[in-house]
Design a protein around this nucleic acid. Structure first.
Lengths: 131, 131
DNA sequence: TTTAAACATTACGTTAACGTCATGTTGAGA
DNA sequence: TCTCAACATGACGTTAACGTAATGTTTAAA
């Protein structure tokens, strides 16, 4: 499988719907598929990868807007970017937010664990009593 | 500050709007404030705590529906619950999901960090050249 | 008792991230 | 060349989690 596929193959391989692809194009999350004149759009393997990466980041709780801030880092070669300073600031912002999220989730995890153990003990006692 | 406050005090102390309180009541996230006949509602300190806890959990990315699954654990005394087994299952589910989220975020954090360092090096080189 | 701020209720509006028609166009195979 | 599945485009619909405006009722204070 090389490049130059139509939207059907693209969506099948990326696990999304055409609607999603067009929506992402409309908000600039992925580049619009090339077309000859005014016909159908053609996409490449990179679009597949891009869609998969977007999906990953979504599962981490990032919004499409946040993803737009960072998605190019995964696909643009490191040379020749213009507003590097700005991107760097955004990245640091995301890093801080990520750390906060992780911290909060770990706290939550601890609490969950405690509740679970409490419940388990309670149920075990009931077991004992029924003997 | 003891119990028995009206919705104004409640929302001020909890950092939410009246609309939010009524919405949460409507979906069963918080118990409806007591009222005498058909007048105004009165709330207690526990409602304040409950609203704050809900806000914390929201920041962790839990939906209101997920929060409804676990919120009572923070406020119901451990004795006399009925479907403990079911709650326990839900808790274990949440624990697994939480672990996944944490793992994904840590991965993302690592990637972010790498990108940041790459950008920093690039900018430093530019600094060097300008000397 | 009166009054104005606080409250209650209803209902329509909003944002994100698409889903789901409806209708018209393209293009690969027979 | 013809045809039918695949594609394009536009528009209205959907869910979550509330915001906001309109209108009517309470209640604490003067």
């Amino acid at each position: 499988m090389k490049g130059r596929m139509r939207i059907g193959d693209l969506t099948e391989r990326a696990g999304v719907t055409p609607r999603t692809v067009r929506y992402y194009e409309s908000i600039g999350l992925i580049p619009p598929g090339e077309r000859e004149g005014a016909g159908q759009h053609y996409y490449t393997d990179e679009t597949v990868e891009r869609l998969r990466k977007i999906d990953q980041l979504k599962k981490l709780g990032l919004t499409l807007e946040e993803i737009r801030d960072v998605i190019d880092l995964y696909f643009t070669d490191s040379s020749g970017v213009q507003p590097k300073q700005k991107v760097l600031a955004i990245l640091r912002q995301h890093l801080a937010e990520t750390d906060e999220k992780i911290g909060g989730l770990q706290q939550f995890r601890t609490e969950l664990q405690a509740h679970i153990e409490r419940f388990e003990r309670w149920l075990e006692e009931r077991e004992q009593e029924r003997r």
